[in-house]
C-alpha cells in the first residue's frame, strides 16, 4: 500500500505525519520526496547509508563542428539555447533534457553529457527503510530525482509512506501518481485553509482517494473542519496542539515512540488502511 502525505506549504506537520505513520507501520518504507528540504532522515537517523548520484542529460556543443545554423535554438521550446556571435550557449538550468536538439543538429555538433543534479540516500532505521532524495541547490527541477525515487519503490509490497514536496506544482503531481491514498495535512488557520484548498484541488484532479489530518487542533470552531464537512472530505484525525508534541518534534525525535503518541498515530494508520480497503471495494 502506498500513501502520500501532502500539504500546501512546508512546516504544517507533513513530515510529522509521514515519519510517524511509517514508524508505527514498523515493517515499512519512508520516502522523502521533499527533495529541496528533505528532513525525514533527521528523525529516523538511518544507518547503513547507501548514496547514489542522480544525473540528467544535457547537450554540449563541439564548437568546431557547429555551423551556427541556429536550428537547435529555434527548436528548443524551453529557450535553453542561445546563439551569440556564432557561439552556442547552453543553459543547463533551463534544459529539460528532451534530447531534441541533439537529434536534429545537421552537423552532429551536439552530444549528451551527464550532469549530476542531486542524490538519493537509502538507509535503515530499526525496521523502517528510509529513502531520501536531495536536489542540489540551484537546480531547477527535482522531478528526475522523484522519478528515480519512485522507480525504486514501484515493486514495493510493504507499507510505503511518501513525504511529498509542499505545494501543488508538477513535482507534487509526479509524487502522487502511483499512490493508493493521499493524506492532506492542514493547520486550522486562514492560511492553512487556503493551502489545503490548493492541494485538495490537485488530489481531486487526479481522482485520488483522500482524507485530511488536522494538525495543531484545538477545541472550538474550526475552519478546516467546516471546509471538510462542506466538501464532504473525511477528517482522518486531529492532532492536538500540545507543547509536549512540539518539543519531541523539534528535538528530532519520533513522537510515536512515546506511549502517549503511539496510539494516536497507529489509530490514524488504521483509519487510513480502512479507507483504502473501502476504496478498493467500492471501485472494483
Amino acid at each position: 500500500m502506498k500513501l502520500a502525505v501532502l500539504s500546501g506549504k512546508g512546516g504544517t506537520g507533513k513530515t510529522l505525519v509521514s515519519v510517524n505513520l511509517a514508524a508505527v507501520a514498523k515493517n515499512s518504507v519512508y520516502v522523502d520526496c521533499d527533495v529541496e528540504e528533505p528532513n525525514g532522515h533527521l528523525f529516523f537517523k538511518p544507518v547503513e547509508i547507501k548514496k547514489e548520484k542522480v544525473s540528467i542529460k544535457i547537450p554540449v556543443v563541439d564548437e568546431d563542428l557547429c555551423l551556427g545554423c541556429r536550428k537547435c535554438v529555434d527548436f528548443c521550446k524551453f529557450n535553453a539555447l542561445a546563439a551569440i556571435i556564432n557561439k552556442l550557449i547552453v543553459f543547463d538550468d533551463i534544459c529539460h533534457s528532451c534530447g531534441g536538439c541533439i537529434m536534429l543538429c545537421p552537423s552532429h555538433a551536439l552530444t549528451e553529457m551527464d550532469k549530476v543534479i542531486g542524490e538519493i540516500n537509502s538507509g535503515i532505521s530499526e525496521k523502517v527503510k528510509v529513502i531520501s532524495g536531495i536536489l542540489n541547490t540551484g537546480e531547477a527541477s527535482g522531478i528526475p530525482i522523484i522519478k528515480e525515487l519512485l522507480s525504486k519503490i514501484s515493486a514495493e509490497e510493504k507499507m510505503t509512506v511518501i513525504d511529498c514536496p509542499p505545494g501543488s506544482a508538477c513535482i507534487v503531481m509526479e509524487s502522487i501518481r502511483d499512490v493508493d491514498y493521499c493524506i492532506l495535512v492542514a493547520e486550522p488557520t486562514v492560511f492553512g485553509l487556503h493551502n489545503l484548498a490548493l492541494v485538495y484541488q490537485l488530489v481531486k484532479l487526479f481522482n485520488k482517494p483522500h482524507g485530511v489530518v488536522i494538525n495543531k487542533w484545538m477545541a472550538g470552531e474550526n475552519l478546516i473542519e467546516r471546509f471538510c464537512s462542506d466538501n464532504q472530505i473525511t477528517v482522518l484525525d486531529k492532532i492536538p496542539f500540545e507543547s509536549e508534541l512540539g518539543t519531541i518534534n523539534s528535538d528530532g525525535e519520533i513522537a510515536a515512540k512515546s506511549e502517549k503518541y503511539y496510539g494516536l498515530f497507529s489509530e490514524l494508520l488504521k483509519t487510513v488502511v480502512k479507507e483504502v480497503e473501502h476504496e478498493t471495494v467500492t471501485h472494483s
Binding site: 529557450n79 542561445a82 551569440i84 556571435i85 533551463i94
Partner: peptide
C-alpha cells in the same frame, strides 16, 4: 517573441536584443 514563451523568456529575449 519571447513574451509568451512558457519558460526561458529571458534567454530568448536576450537573443532577440543581441
Amino acid at each position: 517573441a519571447a513574451a509568451s514563451s512558457p519558460g526561458g523568456a529571458g534567454v530568448k529575449a536576450a537573443q532577440i536584443v543581441v
